[in-house]
Amino acid sequence: MRMRAFQSSDINQMVSLFYETIHAVNARDYTEEQLNAWAPQDEMDAKLIKWKDSFVRNITYIAETNDEIVGFGDMTRNGYLDRLFVHKNFQGQGIATALMNKLESEARKIGLTKIETEASITAKPFFERRGYQVIEPQTIERKGITLINFKMSKRLISE
């Protein structure tokens, strides 16, 4: 696996990875109705444009194996972890850990002392193992459907 910075040409693979992963991996914790509200197929084209802009602004890393994107993560410059996704066929191989190690290291380099995120039910145990604390559970609404996630944060210690 190779880790590298985001390039604009990555966006199609990243959006596809997001949709496929949500509908496959998160299906163990959310209903089909919730998954369709969270990652509706009819929003893919809009995400290509909107996400590309935010990936350029944010600190964004790609995990790649054999020229295939197998994971990605991005964080704002003020420490909000926006997205962290690993391809449905590459779960449990340390990709999310490698991405988070890189993002947390970058956060320290720019002087951040804390990272915050909103973790799904599925991702919550991963973040807890990394030292993230639940601030509060949240009920969010997407397309009239409610979903549970968790506002979480981690204090960064200098390396």
Rank of each mutant, 00 (worst) to 15 (best):
M1N: 02
M1Y: 03
M3D: 03
A5T: 12
Q7G: 01
S9E: 12
Q13M: 08
S16Q: 15
L17C: 09
F18K: 04
A24C: 13
R28H: 12
T31E: 08
Q34I: 07
W38C: 09
A39P: 04
P40R: 03
Q41K: 15
Q41H: 14
D42F: 04
E43D: 15
A46S: 14
L48M: 13
K50N: 15
K52V: 04
F55S: 00
V56G: 00
I59E: 04
I62L: 03
I62T: 00
T65W: 10
T65M: 12
N66A: 11
N66G: 06
E68G: 01
E68H: 09
I69A: 07
V70Q: 00
G71R: 02
G71S: 01
G71K: 02
G73Q: 01
D74Y: 10
M75A: 03
M75C: 08
T76G: 05
R77A: 09
R77D: 10
N78Q: 13
N78G: 05
N78K: 09
Y80W: 11
D82G: 06
D82C: 07
V86N: 04
H87F: 00
N89H: 13
Q93T: 07
Q93V: 03
G94Y: 03
I95R: 01
A98E: 12
N101Q: 12
N101K: 10
E104K: 01
S105D: 13
S105G: 14
R108D: 11
K109M: 09
K109S: 13
I110A: 08
T113Y: 13
T113H: 14
K114I: 09
I115V: 05
T117V: 00
A119R: 01
A119T: 00
A119G: 01
I121W: 03
I121M: 09
T122C: 04
A123C: 06
A123W: 02
F126D: 05
E128R: 06
R129K: 15
R129C: 06
R130V: 04
G131A: 04
Y132H: 01
V134E: 07
V134M: 02
E136L: 04
Q138K: 15
I140W: 09
E141L: 08
R142P: 04
K143C: 11
K143V: 10
I145L: 07
T146Y: 09
F150I: 01
S153K: 10
I157D: 10
I157Q: 13
S158V: 15
